[in-house]
Amino acid sequence: MRLPESRGPLSRAVIDALGGEPGTLPADLTACLVADRSDDDPIRDEDLQILLFTCYELHYRGWDGVDDRWEWEPSLLVLRGAAEARFERALRHLVGPAPTLRAQDVPQALTDLVAADDGPSLSVEIRRRATLDQFREFVTQRSVYHFREADPHTWAIPRLDGRAKAALIEIQSDEYGGGQLSRMHAELFRDAARWLGLDTRYAAHVDAVPAVTLATNNLMSLFGLHRRWRGALLGHLAALEMTSSLPNRNYGEGLRRLGGTPDATRFYDEHVEADAVHEQIATHDMCGAFATAEPDRAADVWFGAASALAVERIFGAHLLDSWAAGRSSLRSPLGARR
């Protein structure tokens, strides 16, 4: 994995630094992030989101030619923390204050949150009208997550106990194919990407996707890499599982309409059934049990779910608005063609 292209002065400075020996970064970089920027939009900020993604990837598989010691370089962590603070403020502004919740209220609160979600129906558009090139764009956008599907939420396993931990492991075991490579969801997604003629290497399309796509991924890493956000990470996963089954049915039907083979559509078909089961496990056995064990974290579960839904709305709107205007949703055109 080569380092991504920079998208502004902050990401350029960090990416340039990562190419050398680990060392202290200039303090003025952090100062730029903590300065008052009340008029900006961190979720759509290309410089901020690629900066966060670059830093977060040091905790996953790393970058080619980058010394692993950068992962825990104090000055880089300070810089990342300042970027995270801007991202978090934007999320809190986006979703509003969390309601006061008792532990026993959490499953119903999640159900109500999903029921009230008024995001654009990207999956319906893809099922009915998306062209093959638009479906390829959609898969390119999603590849940043799906090539490492489940990894961000796995960070929560050692931070839990009891029923919540068992429930999360049950979900994650399915995501990882029960230990069988050919059944891992990331591998099933590669089959779809391969049929579409796309590069199937891990993180192959990071440079092509916009900030809003990176934000959907950075949100998971923000919650996953901080123990204090373990409740939010569970809420995030619950929101994904609760809003997955029907959209994946639509994606599968859309790909079949475009000539997709059974191997190409298997990823989406697998999620229709699996996530219908995961929804109940995530809502009650995972989030409900977690809130019962740690009632002071109940609001965090809601915040994680609300943030997931809100960022997904922005992502879906970006794709639909781009296609309606007759332009690509990507930053750069796709090279591969079937």
Rank of each mutant, 00 (worst) to 15 (best):
residue 28 D to I: 11
residue 156 A to C: 13
residue 180 Q to Y: 13
residue 141 Q to P: 06
residue 276 A to T: 08
residue 234 L to S: 09
residue 269 D to S: 02
residue 332 S to Y: 12
residue 59 H to F: 11
residue 189 F to R: 15
residue 283 T to M: 14
residue 5 E to W: 12
residue 265 T to P: 05
residue 133 D to W: 09
residue 249 R to N: 11
residue 314 I to V: 14
residue 76 L to Q: 02
residue 315 F to K: 00
residue 195 W to G: 14
residue 167 A to D: 13
residue 57 E to F: 06
residue 53 F to W: 07
residue 311 V to T: 02
residue 38 S to N: 13
residue 182 S to W: 13
residue 187 E to K: 10
residue 26 P to W: 04
residue 140 T to W: 10
residue 329 S to Q: 08
residue 17 A to Q: 00
residue 189 F to W: 08
residue 273 E to Y: 12
residue 248 N to L: 03
residue 283 T to F: 13
residue 115 A to H: 07
residue 56 Y to I: 05
residue 23 G to I: 04
residue 85 A to I: 11
residue 197 G to A: 09
residue 158 P to F: 12
residue 221 S to Q: 14
residue 158 P to N: 13
residue 266 R to E: 15
residue 48 L to F: 11
residue 162 G to K: 05
residue 39 D to M: 12
residue 286 M to Y: 06
residue 331 R to T: 11
residue 87 F to Y: 11
residue 99 P to C: 05
residue 192 A to N: 04
residue 227 R to Q: 14
residue 280 Q to A: 09
residue 18 L to Y: 07
residue 211 A to N: 03
residue 176 Y to F: 12
residue 337 R to S: 13
residue 152 P to C: 03
residue 338 R to E: 06
residue 131 T to R: 02
residue 87 F to K: 04
residue 320 L to S: 06
residue 131 T to H: 03
residue 203 A to L: 12
residue 302 W to Y: 04
residue 289 A to S: 15
residue 84 E to M: 05
residue 20 G to I: 00
residue 126 I to C: 03
residue 94 L to W: 00
residue 81 G to P: 01
residue 283 T to W: 14
residue 121 S to P: 01
residue 149 E to R: 09
residue 305 A to W: 00
residue 28 D to E: 14
residue 155 W to F: 11
residue 29 L to S: 02
residue 218 N to F: 06
residue 130 A to S: 07
residue 157 I to V: 07
residue 175 E to C: 02
residue 70 W to C: 02
residue 168 L to E: 01
residue 326 G to D: 05
residue 289 A to G: 11
residue 304 G to H: 01
residue 213 T to L: 01
residue 66 V to C: 06
residue 265 T to Y: 05
residue 119 G to M: 06
residue 71 E to N: 11
residue 59 H to P: 03
residue 147 F to A: 01
residue 29 L to Y: 05
residue 102 R to L: 15
residue 95 V to M: 03
residue 311 V to S: 00
residue 65 G to I: 04
residue 275 D to S: 03
residue 240 L to K: 04
residue 261 T to R: 00
residue 259 G to I: 05
residue 269 D to H: 01
residue 112 D to T: 04
residue 182 S to V: 13
residue 235 G to K: 00
residue 196 L to S: 11
residue 254 G to N: 02
residue 23 G to N: 05
residue 134 Q to S: 08
residue 38 S to I: 12
residue 288 G to L: 03
residue 294 E to W: 13
residue 34 V to R: 15
residue 315 F to I: 03
residue 102 R to T: 14
residue 24 T to R: 13
residue 104 Q to F: 10
residue 2 R to Q: 08
residue 182 S to D: 13
residue 7 R to Q: 11
residue 274 A to D: 12
residue 304 G to F: 00
residue 73 E to S: 14
residue 271 H to D: 02
residue 217 N to S: 12
residue 251 Y to V: 04
residue 48 L to D: 01
residue 307 S to L: 01
residue 10 L to K: 12
residue 103 A to T: 14
residue 185 H to W: 07
residue 298 A to W: 10
residue 55 C to T: 10
residue 111 T to D: 15
residue 35 A to K: 14
residue 99 P to A: 04
residue 214 L to G: 02
residue 225 L to F: 11
residue 125 E to Y: 15
residue 80 R to H: 05
residue 142 R to A: 09
